[in-house]
Simulated assay, not measured.
Amino acid sequence: MKAITLDSSQDSKLLLTDVQSRALLPGEVRVQIKAAALNHRDEWCRKGLYPNLKDGVVLGSDGAGIVAEIGEGVDYDWLQKEVIINPALNWGANQKVQSEAFEILGMPRNGTLAESVIVPLDRLHEKPAHLSWEEAGALPLAGLTAFRALTFQGDLQAGENLLVTGFGGGVAQFAVQFGLALGARVSTSSSSPEKLERANALGVDFTFNYMDHNWISKAFEETNGFDLIVDGAVGDTLNHLIEVAKPGGKIVFYGATLGNPSKLIARKIFWNQLKIMGTTMGSDQDFINMLSLVCEKRIVPIIDQVFKFDEAEEAFDRMRDGKQTGKIVLVP
């Protein structure tokens, strides 16, 4: 089968090649991929910034498709079923945190950027009927991450002020959409006027260009501060978020693309009784609850652009350069 693999000998670090598939183990299924999507995790693998990297592994965590083959012990009713894949493996029984055995589809085990992928049956859920293949394939990893950040960690309530930073990326996109669906007063930030216009079209209350040195004062004028802030950048921008958080507010971060902060306004954290917490991916229950919200509110992921597998380098470069608004999707 054709697949996009990590290959450090290539200039692009990517190779579209034929990969030998294997026989199914008991409890496994083979899913014929109809659409897959990129996450920053895939680009970090390409850059060599992810642990346990190995050439020849098929990249990709997001995917949706049709069950083409079932292993021993799997009910025949699953054959030919349209499914979406939960890429979080071995979360464990503790809703608070993943187990030591936790891993994510796409490294170190083969992922979804292939004509087919083998996964345990318990990773499958029926594809939301209102979504196209491309939309369903775009949902899993970023949707799960955003949902847990808002609900389990952030405990977002209807009517609260929510700030989602960095609109345009996958997690931020879903955090905005889910926040609106949950009844929050949603604001978002970006350095791109075009991306902020897209956010306005979704129905957010306020948008802020974080390149504007007055954005913090503007945020206070418009909102009087935020009950919950969801961020994927951290770095020294964490201190800006501390400034715009309401007393008793929460800051949840799911990534640190800007690295660690060089300083921290500790006094404001304890005096305002702020909660700062990390989050990553989500439990199996989070995934079920996320799908329930998507189906109930008929939420549709924003698709930035769809590429063929043989255009993978262009797709990865678009993510690397931060040009996307929404999810970048690849199809076989």
Rank of each mutant, 00 (worst) to 15 (best):
I4R: 01
T17I: 08
V19I: 13
P26Q: 09
G27A: 03
V29C: 13
I33C: 03
I33N: 02
L38R: 11
H40C: 03
R41C: 03
D42E: 13
W44V: 12
L49C: 06
G60I: 05
I66P: 11
E69H: 09
I70C: 09
E72C: 09
D75E: 14
Y76N: 15
D77H: 15
D77T: 14
Q80E: 14
V83T: 11
I85A: 07
A88Y: 04
L89G: 02
N94I: 04
V97Q: 14
S99F: 07
G106I: 09
R109D: 10
N110Y: 05
G111E: 07
T112V: 08
T112M: 14
A114E: 11
R123M: 14
H125F: 15
P128H: 09
E134G: 01
G137F: 09
L139M: 13
L141G: 06
A142V: 14
L144M: 10
T145K: 05
Q153G: 05
G154M: 08
D155L: 12
L163R: 00
A172S: 15
Q173M: 14
Q173N: 14
F174L: 15
V176F: 11
L182H: 10
G183R: 05
G183Y: 08
G183A: 09
A184H: 03
R185N: 15
S190V: 08
A199L: 01
G203Q: 00
T207C: 13
F208W: 04
Y210N: 05
W215N: 04
I216H: 04
E221R: 08
V230R: 02
A233Q: 05
L238G: 08
L238F: 08
L238S: 08
H240C: 08
A245V: 06
G248P: 07
G248V: 06
I251M: 03
V252L: 05
F253V: 04
G259S: 10
P261Y: 05
S262N: 10
L264R: 03
L264M: 11
A266D: 01
K268W: 02
K268A: 12
N272V: 01
Q273V: 00
Q273H: 10
L274T: 04
G278W: 06
M281F: 11
S283V: 02
I288W: 03
M290R: 00
L291M: 09
V294H: 03
V300E: 10
P301R: 00
I302F: 04
V306E: 01
V306N: 02
F309L: 15
E313C: 04
E314I: 15
F316G: 11
M319P: 08
R320M: 13
D321Q: 14
G322I: 07
I328G: 12
L330E: 02
P332M: 12
